[in-house]
Computed example of a mutant assay.
Amino acid sequence: MILLYYTQRLKDLREDNDWTQGQVANYLDLKREQYRRYETGINEIKVSFLIKICKLYNVSADYILGFTNTKKELPKK
């Protein structure tokens, strides 16, 4: 189930960077509660959210969504 992958990946990426939910929420211009709902799977992620989170952690959407276990960096422009 993809939902389980992305919720755990969001939490793992945040914790790997030693960030709080509040810090990530601020970066994404969300309230902490809104971000928490994404991380726990209460709210499904939107494409605009996915793009921002990929940029924040410099990983592919495939990794966040659980299609791959390889953390590939985003291509340089």
Rank of each mutant, 00 (worst) to 15 (best):
I2K: 15
I2C: 11
I2R: 15
L3H: 09
L4R: 15
Y5H: 13
Y6L: 13
Y6T: 12
T7A: 08
Q8N: 10
R9F: 03
R9T: 07
L10V: 06
K11M: 13
K11H: 13
K11P: 04
D12F: 03
L13E: 04
L13Y: 03
E15K: 12
N17K: 08
N17C: 06
N17I: 01
D18F: 12
W19I: 05
W19H: 15
W19Y: 12
G22W: 10
Q23A: 08
Q23D: 11
Q23E: 15
Q23W: 08
V24T: 13
A25S: 01
N26G: 06
N26P: 01
Y27G: 00
D29L: 07
D29T: 09
D29C: 07
K31W: 14
K31R: 11
K31A: 13
R32Y: 06
R32V: 05
E33I: 13
Y35C: 10
R37W: 14
Y38D: 12
E39N: 03
E39C: 08
E39R: 05
E39M: 06
I42L: 08
I42Q: 13
N43F: 00
E44Y: 05
I45P: 01
I45E: 03
I45H: 01
K46T: 06
K46A: 11
V47E: 10
S48M: 05
L50K: 07
L50P: 09
I51S: 13
K52I: 10
K52H: 15
K52N: 15
I53Y: 02
I53G: 03
C54T: 08
K55C: 01
K55F: 05
L56D: 05
L56I: 07
Y57S: 04
Y57P: 02
Y57R: 04
N58T: 00
V59S: 01
V59G: 01
S60W: 01
S60G: 00
S60M: 00
S60P: 06
A61C: 09
D62W: 04
Y63P: 00
Y63M: 02
Y63H: 03
I64T: 06
I64E: 00
I64Y: 02
L65E: 06
L65N: 09
L65D: 02
G66L: 03
G66S: 09
F67D: 03
T68K: 06
T68P: 00
N69L: 09
N69Q: 09
K71C: 04
K71I: 02
K72F: 12
E73M: 05
L74G: 11
K77Y: 14
